[in-house]
Simulated assay, not measured.
Amino acid sequence: MGERPQTPEGFVTHLGVVTDAIAGAPLDDALQARLNRDFPADGAWHADAREWVLRGCEEGWLCGREAGGIKFGRAVPAGEALAGMSVDVVEMTEIVGPHHAHPNGEIDLVIPIDLGAAFDGQGAGWKVYGPGSAHHPTVTGGKALVLYLLPGGAIEFTRG
């Protein structure tokens, strides 16, 4: 079995534009609004992020594992490169994922593949969950890729 290809530095640098801009900000509705304003789904940054994520899935450095109909994988561990955040990407199609909690919060970049696909009700763009939140991640309306930033890399799978 071959090793997973390395995550390209260009991908990390691209995401660093966002993590540097929001470092230290509370994970709340105001941050979600700010991200959707400053890095909108119809903007150049989002278009480039989409291309990076599609390329990563194709080349195998993203979504390299699969369980329960969901492809997933951690692309970047939490560390200084991204203001203490880790990066994971999931590919989901019309599915409810496993319940989990976000001890430090979660910042999601939603990238619909199918027109009308949404993650927890959010189409293309950003969804922010505050510290201590929990959910069953759900994609409706087709296939979507979701890139999520976890402060400290913290996530707890639960039985909720």
Score class of each variant (00 low, 15 high):
residue 126 W to N: 01
residue 22 I to V: 15
residue 81 A to R: 13
residue 107 I to W: 03
residue 149 L to Q: 04
residue 2 G to F: 12
residue 139 V to R: 07
residue 104 N to H: 11
residue 89 V to A: 09
residue 48 D to N: 15
residue 87 V to L: 15
residue 137 P to H: 05
residue 127 K to Q: 10
residue 72 F to N: 12
residue 58 E to M: 05
residue 56 G to D: 10
residue 154 A to V: 12
residue 58 E to R: 15
residue 130 G to T: 05
residue 159 R to P: 04
residue 93 T to Y: 03
residue 124 A to D: 01
residue 128 V to C: 06
residue 125 G to W: 03
residue 10 G to L: 10
residue 156 E to H: 11
residue 16 G to D: 11
residue 139 V to D: 03
residue 48 D to I: 08
residue 142 G to L: 08
residue 141 G to I: 00
residue 51 E to Q: 15
residue 9 E to S: 14
residue 61 W to K: 05
residue 11 F to Y: 15
residue 71 K to C: 11
residue 143 K to F: 00
residue 33 A to D: 14
residue 119 F to T: 00
residue 154 A to D: 15
residue 155 I to Q: 12
residue 30 A to G: 08
residue 35 L to N: 08
residue 86 S to Y: 04
residue 78 A to F: 07
residue 37 R to H: 11
residue 104 N to M: 08
residue 121 G to W: 00
residue 12 V to Q: 08
residue 78 A to I: 06
residue 49 A to Y: 01
residue 35 L to C: 08
residue 10 G to V: 13
residue 81 A to G: 06
residue 18 V to D: 09
residue 69 G to F: 03
residue 104 N to C: 03
residue 59 E to F: 05
residue 52 W to I: 00
residue 110 V to G: 01
residue 114 D to K: 05
residue 77 P to F: 01
residue 101 A to M: 10
residue 28 D to I: 01
residue 158 T to M: 14
